[in-house]
């Protein structure tokens, strides 16, 4: 999303580099434009959080990084490089080599994302056998150490357990162990704590933060929860209508949001900065991705919208170092030079 963030600048070749990434789904009735030109940079070892409400295109963006959207109905365009590999040019066979050892994903709902009729141990070991060609027995031993890594108590016994026999928190830990099984360089997490109890959520987040630091992975989180974002992320990108509307280091974004949508989102959430103030709401509903407005997608709901907002999609501009906003009202284009893509 920006080329000037400090972490990116330090590393000559970023782990993830996406340019003008677009994803659309062809349905019989209409074409749904879920992601409309997202730029993304992530350095090795960096943690980025994509924040947005349902239908903002955040999960679709995440899946597009693995080319995991249903192949028949999905059109993905743009540039996408992960770990110096051109993901857009990959064949199905190359993709299956890429998924696992280079990039892996933690899904939102571990109960439905784990196969109910295979044991946890089998499901972790099969990925290791697939990618490293080691024996089943050795893979099982690795699976055991992975379960210990994600702090599952009495791990040896859990290896033979089926998903339904574990609690929600343990299931998500097993899911994390599975995602880590082939030592990925990039870990994607699609709302990893949404399906969990509040007390378990924070444990999982702390575990993920710890693992990310220990293993030096790049991590991209998707969430609608600003609390989660502030817990785990270095940088936050706010998405709306399939575009990034604001992006900044996490402290800056929470302390001084610029985009009206981000302000609205923060005003509607309970967090440290809202103590003592009344929660606000954003009027209206998210846009229909099949019929996006010509201008800013948020303009129809925006209290500060000007006539120009409805005409053309505003560019993403840098307001201060590492803080980018896509809003002509709070950040007029004549003051700031647009960032080239």
């Amino acid at each position: 999303m920006n080329m000037a963030s400090p972490a990116t600048a330090a590393s000559p070749t970023p782990l993830v580099r996406a340019r003008d990434l677009c994803v659309s789904f062809a349905t019989p009735r209409a074409t749904v434009n879920a992601v409309n030109g997202v730029n993304l940079d992530l350095a090795q070892g960096e943690s980025l959080c994509i924040l947005g409400e349902s239908g903002s295109g955040k999960s679709v963006t995440l899946r597009a990084l693995m080319r995991l959207n249903p192949p028949k109905r999905t059109v993905v365009t743009g540039e996408l490089n992960v770990a110096n590999q051109d993901v857009m040019q990959m064949t199905q066979a190359q993709l299956s080599q890429y998924r696992g050892p280079v990039v892996s994903m933690i899904f939102q709902e571990p109960l439905s994302a784990l196969d109910p009729v295979f044991t946890i141990g089998h499901q972790i070991a099969e990925a290791i056998v697939r990618h490293e060609g080691i024996s089943r027995k050795a893979a099982r031993a690795r699976a055991l150490s992975l379960l210990e890594l994600v702090q599952i108590p009495s791990a040896a016994r859990r290896l033979g357990a089926y998903p339904h026999e574990l609690s929600g928190g343990l299931r998500q830990r097993a899911m994390i162990a599975m995602a880590l099984s082939c030592n990925p360089r990039l870990l994607l997490a699609d709302e990893p704590t949404t399906a969990l109890d509040a007390t378990v959520q924070i444990q999982i987040l702390l575990l993920l933060r710890k693992l990310q630091r220990e293993l030096g992975m790049g991590v991209i989180f998707v969430t609608h929860d600003i609390g989660v974002a502030s817990e785990v992320a270095d940088r936050v990108a706010v998405m709306y209508g399939g575009r990034v509307v604001e992006e900044a280091p996490v402290e800056i974004l929470i302390r001084s949001p610029r985009h009206p949508y981000t302000s609205g989102l923060l005003g509607a959430t309970v967090h440290a900065g809202t103590r003592g103030t009344r929660l606000t709401t954003i009027p209206g509903a998210p846009p229909d991705l099949a019929e996006l407005p010509a201008g800013c997608a948020f303009a129809p709901r925006c209290t500060r919208a000007e006539p120009g907002c409805h005409k053309a999609v505003p560019p993403l501009l840098e307001v201060t170092a590492g803080h980018h906003v896509r809003c002509p009202v709070v950040c007029p284009a004549r003051i700031q030079a647009p960032i080239n893509v």
């Binding site: 693995m66 995991l68 993709l95 299956s96 080599q97 890429y98 998924r99 696992g100 050892p101 892996s104 994903m105 899904f107 709902e109 439905s112 994302a113 784990l114 196969d115 109910p116 009729v117 295979f118 099969e126 990925a127 697939r130 990618h131 599975m178 099984s181 082939c182």
Partner: peptide, 25 residues
């Protein structure tokens, strides 16, 4: 159409590996 098939694809399993899961289910 189940989520766990997406997970299996996300693990990089070959089609033959995914078929095994479909059969057992």
């Amino acid at each position: 159409g189940q989520d766990y098939i997406t997970t299996l694809r996300g693990k990089g399993l070959r089609t033959s590996g995914i078929v095994l899961h479909v059969i057992k289910n």
